[in-house]
């Protein structure tokens, strides 16, 4: 298990606001790594920097040996690093099937391989198969979330960035989405996960990072973090 993603001394500014300060993290091949932290701590900003939506002021991001911190977002995707943005951004005027097809857009391999991946995605996310001809905009929130993930998987990524996949979902769907993430990972996809639901995230992750006001303040094995009294107190609702 080698390092797949390495972020070193990342600094991101919004105007004069220093949003990310000297942040470093690594994700090894085959892992699920989660970033937890309060709102505004910089989790989404870090994700945006990794996926190329934001350009960092300084620091480096290396993915699979490529320096990606100055690369355009679409090129990063072709390297096999896919992002599943928060807020269920699906193409609502297109069908489920068409959405998935677009996910495979950046790939150059054969039709048969793409067809294989359709089957893989439908196996992982059986609800999408039932609804393959429905317009994405008419799906419920949870189904849209799954579609966004399915679309990301269609680019046949080695690594998946997931930003708040459980947001706005019912308890039942939250469980289902986490089960799906686990299954996707077991199929060989490395996952970097940002979640407010720290308990569930630490539950399926191998390792975790705690991020506070733009810096990593704690890191370690997910199970250790889940048992840490400070983490419990701050992020797991330990006080209640």
């Amino acid at each position: 298990m080698g390092e797949l993603l390495k972020v070193e001394n990342l600094n991101v500014y919004y105007g004069s606001i220093h949003a990310i300060k000297d942040l470093s993290l690594t994700v090894n091949e085959g892992e699920i790594v989660t970033m937890i932290g309060a709102n505004g701590a910089g989790k989404t900003t870090t994700m945006h920097a990794i996926s190329g939506l934001l350009k960092p002021r300084s620091g480096s991001i290396t993915y699979d040996g490529h320096l990606i911190s100055r690369m355009d977002a679409y090129k990063i995707v072709t390297l096999g690093l896919a992002q599943c943005p928060e807020g269920r951004r699906v193409f609502s005027g297109l069908t489920v099937h068409e959405n998935l097809e677009l996910g495979a857009y950046s790939r150059k391999d054969s039709k048969a391989a793409v067809e294989d991946d359709f089957n893989m995605v439908f196996e992982l996310l059986p609800r999408l198969k039932e609804r393959r001809n429905q317009l994405a905009g008419t799906l419920s929130g949870g189904e849209q979330q799954m579609l966004a993930m399915g679309r990301a998987l269609m680019s046949k990524p080695r690594m998946l960035l997931l930003d708040e996949p459980s947001m706005g979902l019912s308890p039942l769907l939250v469980k289902e989405i986490f089960r799906t993430i686990k299954r996707v990972n077991e199929n060989g996809v490395t996952v970097l996960l940002v979640e407010q639901n720290a308990k569930m995230a630490l539950n399926i992750a191998n390792r975790g990072y705690v991020i506070e006001t733009g810096s990593i303040t704690m890191e370690g094995k997910a199970s250790d973090l889940a048992d840490d009294p400070k983490v419990k107190q701050a992020y797991l609702g330990g006080a209640a």
Partner: peptide
């Protein structure tokens, strides 16, 4: 003197923006 938040912020480059994008679509 770096004391205040900038008054002018462009939508694509302000901290509140990305963090505020935590909005699911209407149900």
């Amino acid at each position: 003197g770096n004391r205040q938040m900038p008054e002018e912020t462009v939508e694509t480059a302000d901290a509140g923006y990305f963090e505020a994008k935590k909005s699911g679509k209407e149900e």
